[in-house]
Design a protein around this nucleic acid. Structure first.
Length: 396
RNA sequence: GGAGAGGUGGCAGAGCGGUUUAAUGCAGCGGUCUUGAAAACCGCAGAAGGUGAUGAAUCUUCCGGGAGUUCGAAUCUCCCCCUCUCCUCCA
């Protein structure tokens, strides 16, 4: 298809070159009207040739929404890195490392929704009254604990070199397409039909698109951005899954970390990014593990992904709390994010990476469940105490 | 929501149907001069794509976006988008 497209394009361009030449001849002639009359038949013929070839080229052009070539390319995911383990589903993911040991409880640990309702800090019933299922109300120390977590994450991000950004939460269709979300989250996004705006499913979208259509200087790389935002997802394909509690909500908060790097730096950056996210769990003293997603589980736009999973006592299992991906040049190509190695050298595509650092709601529930005490109160992790001004969330 | 003004190369800013391969200035790069620098002077300079060897060369497209008029459009017509100013409303 590409070969066909290019030969049609060559036909268009050579005919155009000839036509331009004739037009310039008229422009240079002393008697322009006479020259125009004389050359008219030739020009007319060229115009027809151009139009025919243009129609042919347009049919396959990637600019054309109906082009089969575009369709093919749009549906093609990123190329996986060689280090990604082969697998047929998530059971083939590989645990790379972990830290912390699940705590031994001398009582039956409660799920966070029960703890939260007893403490009066989580209210799912009233949330349902306001907005239906998959929403939550945080109240009192719950709201404050959530805010403390955000503050803690952002301060850590800043110390690790990230520039904090507060981006728009609604973005255009073009921006969504550029970051590859229209394929990945096509049915998952809330959308305003009239203005054709989408509510972001993750801050990865505005952060990655920030430098779209720009040519950066090599010395500006890597760029590191952090944003705290709400995220909105329909969760249409998750009917009946995680219906209780904070795990899967239509609206949740997240601190997102994004890097733009030179191509040769991106896999090293993925390790650093993952370590940054991981260090937050370590600081909160939550047991976790790092998982390298297998070929079947890596998302559409990523070449390699590490998931961070946190221990949830009520479920006796590890649960995803962060996902760190190297998207190589996949998003950069769609968004036209380039850089120059030297002032005179050709622009090259950057590599983009993103990771949660971390999901706020899931951190909140992980803290609640792992730090719960026999009397139903919750100890506050040491690193969060200065934000809350207390070391325990008591039963009221 | 209403009214007006405007969108031109990294920036500023001309051009308003055909020697525009977009003037000029600043910034940038190279050179002359200089022990070195500055100043002055001279020259080169953007993006995307096709053919081609990632060379040389060459062609096409790009003056907010799209469509149109014309042999020929930055320049004329229509639609859309964005920015600024004033009014209105408002966290």
């Amino acid at each position: 298809m590409d070969t066909q497209y290019r030969s049609a394009l060559t036909a268009v361009e050579t005919a155009k070159a000839e036509k331009n030449r004739l037009s310039a001849e008229i422009g240079k002639a002393a008697d322009k009207a006479a020259a125009a009359r004389e050359l008219r038949p030739q020009i007319e013929q060229l115009s027809q040739r151009i139009e025919a070839a243009q129609t042919q080229a347009h049919e396959l052009s990637v600019e054309n929404p109906d082009s089969p070539l575009r369709e093919l390319l749009t549906q093609s995911p990123n190329v996986l890195d060689d280090s990604v383990p082969d697998g047929k589903d998530e059971s083939d993911n590989i645990v790379v490392r972990g830290a912390g040991t699940p705590r031994e409880f001398d009582f039956e640990p409660l799920p966070h929704w029960e703890l939260g309702e007893r403490l009066g800090i989580l209210d799912f019933e009233r949330a349902a009254k306001l907005s239906g299922s998959r929403f939550s109300v945080l109240r009192g120390d719950g709201a404050r604990l959530s805010r403390a977590i955000v503050q803690f994450f952002l301060e850590r991000a800043q110390r690790s070199g990230y520039v904090e950004v507060a981006p728009p939460l609604l973005v255009s269709r073009q921006t969504m397409w550029n970051t590859g979300q229209l394929t990945k989250f096509a049915d998952a996004m809330f959308q305003d039909q009239g203005a054709d705006l989408f509510m972001i499913p993750t801050a990865e979208v505005p952060l990655t698109a920030l430098h779209g259509d720009e040519i950066l200087n090599a010395e500006d790389l890597p760029l590191q951005y952090a944003a705290y935002t709400p995220c909105f997802r329909k969760e249409a394909g998750a009917a009946g899954k995680d219906t209780r509690g904070l795990v899967r909500q239509h609206q949740f908060e997240k601190v997102e970390l994004v890097w733009l790097t030179a191509p040769e730096q991106s896999f090293d950056a993925l390790e650093q990014l993952t370590r940054h996210a991981e260090s937050l769990l370590a600081a909160l003293e939550l047991p976790y593990r790092v998982v390298s997603l297998c070929s079947a589980d890596v998302g559409f736009n990523a070449a390699k992904t590490y998931d961070l999973e946190v221990w949830l006592p009520s479920a006796s299992t590890y649960r995803e709390i962060s996902s760190c991906s190297n998207c190589t040049d996949f998003q950069a190509r769609r968004s036209a994010i380039r850089f120059r190695r030297e002032p005179k050298s050709k622009p090259e595509l950057v590599h983009t990476l993103n990771g949660s650092g971390l999901a706020v709601g899931r951190t909140l529930l992980a803290v609640m469940e792992n730090y719960q005490q026999a009397d139903g109160s919750i100890r506050v992790p040491a690193v969060l105490q200065k934000y809350l001004g207390t070391d325990v969330i008591p039963r009221s």
